[in-house]
Amino acid sequence: MTVTKAHIDVLPGADPRAPLLEVNDLHVEFRTQYGVAKAVNGANFRLAAGETLAILGESGCGKSVTAQAIMGILDSPPGFITKGQIKYRGVDLLGVAEEQRRKVRANQIAMIFQDALSALNPVYTVGFQLAELFRIHRGMSRKDAKKRAIELLDQVKIPAAKTRVDDYPHQFSGGMRQRVMIAMALALDPEVLIADEPTTALDVTVQAQIMGLLADLQKQRNMGLILITHDMGVVADVADRISVMYAGKVVEEAGVYDIYSRPAHPYTRALLESIPRLDMKGQQLNVIQGLPPALTSIPQGCAFNPRCRFAKDPCRQDPAPPAYAVAPQRTARCHFFREVLGE
């Protein structure tokens, strides 16, 4: 292999010293016939090489949409990015022409999806789907591309890769399929990997194996990993930092230890209290009262105020709480974060 990353100058203007990935004030809305759904309303975060950032939140809080916006695979229409920046190594991807943007996918930023059975094309062999990346992006011959596909399957520890390369997705088990997805995402050595609920469809033992594999591969390659999940357990094990999203906003961002020990936002706190624990056997499980707001009518002020036990008058009025600096490298969008922390 003589082709190296440096030879494939896919994104002109990228500065290797600039931060790996920066999302600033991202707004995404879906214009449907039932009204405008504001899925993401000012998401902010940063990701450094080798770092794992977990984006945590309930279904419908905008975490998957944020991921799709970063990848540039938002269905448009109905989805539109109305404001914000997505900077990769200093280049705002939203200003890049589609042809350039296409090459960024898989080369610089790759993604794995929740349900590998439906995320893989059922009518092509996994070998074809892997080799395709090398053929399209690297112009390799079918034979060389297949050889690389086998190497990749080996790297994600699929036994008998040489024969399995000709199998179809439905012939693999759930865990093996997710390994194939990972192999596909890592094929072109991306610097950023976005994993959208990578273990949700798997059973617990396989979950641990897949997370372990992801962590190993991340370390080997010094990749930035964005882990999208609603599973607090998975996050505690692997994440360096956590962004908690609610109604399309990052309501709290902090290191994993801080979040678990002293949450600064009432929503984070409520999430942590709703985790079932063995020592609470027989007691009623804490739940967050009410439902997340409909994205077509997000409450004024802080979006969480109707469900919040700390809410006071300022919370119910615009403007929404800004991102208060709770500590260095730590923010929370709550007027009363001191109360939440100190109680």
């Binding site: 695979i73 296409r102 996918r105 790759a110 999806f113 349900d115 439906s118 893989l120 990346l133």
Partner: peptide
């Protein structure tokens, strides 16, 4: 879903 994957792979 596989269409989303194919697009995420940077195919035309």
């Amino acid at each position: 879903d596989y269409v989303r994957t194919a697009r995420a792979k940077g195919l035309t």
